[in-house]
Design a protein around this nucleic acid. Structure first.
Ligand SMILES: [Mn+2]
Ligand SMILES: [Mn+2]
Ligand SMILES: [Zn+2]
Ligand SMILES: [Zn+2]
Lengths: 143, 143
DNA sequence: AAATAGAATTAGAATTATTCTAATTAATTA
DNA sequence: TAATTAATTAGAATAATTCTAATTCTATTT
């Protein structure tokens, strides 16, 4: 047997409870859960086609939107680049490493509050927070 | 005399020192310094045309890019919306108030460090930080 | 199991913010 | 001033995303 997650397992994931999991939505969600590397819609499309050659790009966009609306997936934007998608639902920011090209998750520190860093307006109710960082991870000098 | 900032004053602003300040760049920078409300390129274009009817949208984009590259202006992105431009160079995030539609600057607290909030990767050199918030400022109950 | 109704999928067209191209004009330097 | 380099301009091109309308699927009801 191939060491793969079944469609059933994906479609029954607690995070998609209450969302109608069609074959296409299941496949898109599986792609995202497979590599946690923040793919673009186009990259999700390429990967999904391997398992489901008939899927269309419009459907990938539709599925991603449904998953984001449902709260099962986060949409991540770096400046004006294509949106990327992330299945990590814990509160975190994103670091784009210019050296490797990779985007990595940056967890929020346990117990830290946003108001420790920012002068939030009185009475502000925050519905959405996005923290994005760009830079490079310095090579250590050792071989 | 009209209570207006002159082109000379704008073109000699310390933040644009070293950038060739053409008439168009000066006008674009004046628009941004005029209302600190984070206009889009299209909004900058509309405002600039009042003083300089011959300016083109392509030039507004070019001028904004030159100012951003020079570090005189910040480019601000909310999700996939049009880019907005901000002449406030102090470190700050942005709050989009869904009630008023306005985008307001959120200063970083004096003495607070990013690493208080985030688990930064070892050896990461941060070149750029963007913090964007979306939500609403609750109406106070008093009249 | 058929019939129905509602929702999702699809291919391709449309949209739109932004970038590009190539010609013209302006600014700087010699 | 002449020469050189850079910026501006109108319009075309680009590309991510959304829309449209027809088809197919899914779930529900008979
Ligand atoms: Mn990159
Ligand atoms: Mn708004
Ligand atoms: Zn992530
Ligand atoms: Zn700002």
């Amino acid at each position: 047997m191939k060491n793969e997650v079944t469609a059933q397992e994906i479609a029954n994931h607690p995070k998609v409870k209450g969302l109608r999991m069609t074959r296409q939505r299941t496949e898109v969600y599986r792609v995202l859960m497979g590599h946690r590397d923040h793919p673009t819609a186009g990259e999700v499309f390429e990967r999904a086609k391997q398992n489901m050659p008939s899927i269309s790009l419009a459907t990938v966009y539709n599925c991603l939107e449904a998953l984001v609306q449902h709260g099962a997936v986060r949409q991540v934007n770096f400046e004006r680049e294509s949106s990327r998608y992330c299945p990590n639902l814990s509160e975190h920011g994103h670091f784009h490493d210019e050296t490797s090209g990779k985007i990595i998750d940056i967890p929020l520190k346990k117990g830290a509050a946003l108001s420790d860093l920012l002068e939030l307006p009185k009475g502000a109710q925050i519905d959405n927070l996005e923290i994005t960082l760009r830079g490079r991870v310095l090579q250590s000098k050792a071989l």
